[in-house]
Simulated assay, not measured.
Amino acid sequence: MSGGATPGPAPPLAAEELPLFELFQDLREAGLSLGTRDYLELLRALRMGEGLDDTRALLRLCQLLWTGTREESRLLERLFDRTVEAAARRMRPAPEPAAVAPEPAPPPPASAAGSPAAPPPAAAPAVGAAPAAPAATEARPPPRGRALELALAMLRGAPGEVEPTALRRALPDEYLPVSPRQMRQAWRRLRRMERRGPRTEPDVDATLAQIARDGVFLGPALVARRTNVERLLLLVDRHGSMTPFQVLTRRLVETARRGGRLAHVGVWYFDNTPLELDAGLAVHREGAGGELVLLRDVLSAGPRAVTGALVVSDAGAARRAYSTERIEATGRFLGELRAQLRRVAWINPVPRHRWPGTSAQAVRAVIPMFEADRAGLDAALRVLRGRRPHPHGGP
């Protein structure tokens, strides 16, 4: 029996070391509805040796487990090629330093006649013999070996050692009541289309009317492109009782900016309620220690005013507290909003059944308030579009 110590279990992988995690996250950011179960299915398949025959087999495995349409399959293929190329670059060895030229050899000793000895003649190849082959270079691995190398380079560890805690850190939005994809879909329904800018699109009706009037086609009539002119204001409660919901609020902000296709998204923060100054209510800019700006200046900033505001706060429901002071401060806050905006809605990350008996119940009586799930977000955005919310998401 060997006296060596038994090796302990391999340490769990960090989030950035998860197998094919970069590809998985790219797909999620592109809108594919993928969760932890889909990711674990890939790990099980890799442990069984599936997808390691060549890079195309690995691609087909990912397509089989992670896509459901041709469009999704083509998107995965583009992202997969980029991921494999990045892995190949990491595997390339660093260039060796240039070899130092050897010092010249000392001259050979003189012969007895005083002249330098001639070097021995090189042996001539035998007649009919093949010429000497050049120095052998390192052979490239066969396709299967290369694919296996790339796959293992992307694995960077034993898939069986991936702990659920690592997945929770890497995929925090998997446990949200509304997924980022659903958020993006909801934001895209918040739109007010107008034709603005240079005339670049052909107008078929105007072109036909011009031909009928002039009797000749002189060129297409052009109109400006239709664009979304909706300008949204996000007012987000942070710190304190809202700390556990920071992942949710961050996802709401990110999806509104990157996937909402809105003309403008202004994001401002407050703690419980906007700060009351002598000059008026003030909110914080983004970032730690963001400067204070008066709310009325935020509402009127820019060439075009904001068209709607969405408040994200627990309104005291997280601590199950009823505070008259907070209710009054929130009333002043909403009064200033409604003095300049017709469309204001409220998203509460605390479930509805915990609102009764808290400040949230009083706030809900004066503003449409919804849960932070898919139905609630859809209902809140219907209010911002000037419509009544559906019954299942109504206040």
Rank of each mutant, 00 (worst) to 15 (best):
G3S: 08
T6E: 13
P9K: 14
A10C: 04
A14R: 14
A15V: 09
L18N: 10
L18W: 11
F21N: 09
E22I: 12
L27S: 00
L34D: 01
G49Q: 02
L52S: 12
L52P: 02
D54T: 12
D54V: 12
R56I: 12
L64Y: 08
L65E: 02
T67L: 03
G68L: 00
L76E: 02
E77T: 05
R78C: 10
L79I: 03
R82K: 07
R82E: 11
A86V: 01
P93V: 00
P93I: 01
A94G: 06
E96Q: 10
P97V: 01
A101N: 01
P102E: 00
P102S: 03
P104Y: 00
P106I: 01
P116K: 01
P121N: 05
A123T: 06
A126D: 11
V127T: 09
A130W: 09
P134N: 13
E138W: 06
A139Y: 00
P141R: 10
R146T: 06
M154C: 13
L155S: 03
L155C: 15
A158P: 13
E163I: 07
T165N: 08
A166W: 05
L167F: 13
Y175F: 14
P177I: 06
V178D: 11
S179N: 10
Q182E: 15
R184K: 15
R188T: 08
R188D: 04
R189D: 04
R191F: 06
R192G: 04
R192K: 10
R195M: 01
E201M: 15
E201G: 00
P202R: 11
P202I: 04
V204C: 03
I211S: 04
P220C: 05
A224Q: 07
T227S: 12
L232V: 14
L235Q: 05
D237P: 02
R238V: 10
R238M: 07
H239M: 11
S241W: 06
M242A: 08
T249M: 14
R250A: 15
E254P: 07
A256F: 05
G259F: 06
G259E: 06
L262H: 10
A263I: 03
G266L: 14
W268F: 12
G289K: 12
E291Y: 10
V298E: 03
L299V: 02
V306Q: 06
A309I: 00
V312W: 11
S313E: 01
S313I: 03
A315R: 05
G316S: 05
R320E: 13
R326S: 08
E336M: 09
L337I: 02
Q340F: 00
Q340H: 11
R343C: 07
A345R: 12
I347K: 09
I347A: 10
R352F: 08
S359C: 01
V363F: 03
R364D: 00
M369D: 02
R374Y: 08
L377M: 13
A379C: 08
R382I: 07
V383G: 14
V383K: 05
R385C: 08
P391M: 11
G393S: 09
